[in-house]
Simulated scan of single mutants.
Amino acid sequence: MRSQSCRGECYDNAQAESLWFRLKTEVLEVRERAVFADLADVQASVAEYFEYYNHERLHSSIDYWMSYLAHQQFLQLSVLNCPV
């Protein structure tokens, strides 16, 4: 896979790099074979993983919360702290 960061800037896109690494590792680890039947199989696997990643997987970088819940809390705090 091609790097998503700029030349000489290894940390500028660390979150995206981490996400793609985890997707590749966690999707392929749970499969019996690391081969997909067709494009629809790949799309379904990626969609299923993102559903899991956002709504079930606990993330150490956000105090072991699910990213969906952390995002919802962030949105509520943003609205409450927004000057009228």
Rank of each mutant, 00 (worst) to 15 (best):
V30K: 15
C6Q: 11
M66S: 01
C6D: 07
H59K: 04
R57C: 01
L19Y: 04
M1R: 10
D41G: 07
M66K: 13
L39K: 14
E56I: 07
W65V: 07
E29A: 15
A34D: 08
Q43W: 07
A47W: 02
A14Y: 05
W65F: 10
R2M: 08
P83E: 11
T25I: 06
R2H: 12
E9Q: 15
V35S: 09
F36K: 01
A34V: 09
K24N: 12
L23I: 03
M1Q: 06
S3K: 14
Y49F: 13
V42I: 13
L75M: 14
V27I: 15
L75H: 06
Y11P: 02
R33W: 07
G8E: 01
R7T: 10
F50N: 08
N81L: 10
Y52A: 00
L75Q: 13
S67A: 15
N81F: 04
V27Y: 00
F74Y: 14
R2Q: 12
R33N: 13
A14N: 06
V35R: 13
L28Q: 12
S67K: 06
G8N: 04
R33G: 05
N13A: 07
S3E: 13
S60Y: 06
V46P: 01
D12S: 14
S67G: 08
T25H: 12
L58V: 07
S60Q: 12
Q43H: 12
Q43C: 08
E26W: 05
S45G: 05
E48W: 03
V35F: 05
S18W: 01
F36A: 05
V30H: 13
V46L: 07
A47Y: 03
D12M: 04
C82T: 14
R31F: 00
D12E: 11
A47L: 10
A14H: 01
V27W: 02
E17R: 02
V84W: 11
L75S: 06
S5F: 08
P83T: 05
Q4W: 11
Y68M: 09
E51S: 09
Q72N: 10
E32P: 03
D38G: 10
R57Q: 03
E29R: 15
V46H: 01
S5P: 01
Q15A: 13
Q73D: 14
E51N: 14
E56F: 03
Q72V: 10
S45V: 00
A37V: 08
M66L: 06
E17Y: 01
H55Y: 09
T25P: 01
D41A: 09
Q4H: 11
H59A: 04
A37P: 00
V46Q: 01
V35K: 09
S45E: 04
S45W: 00
S78V: 12
L75V: 06
D38P: 01
A70Q: 02
H71Q: 14
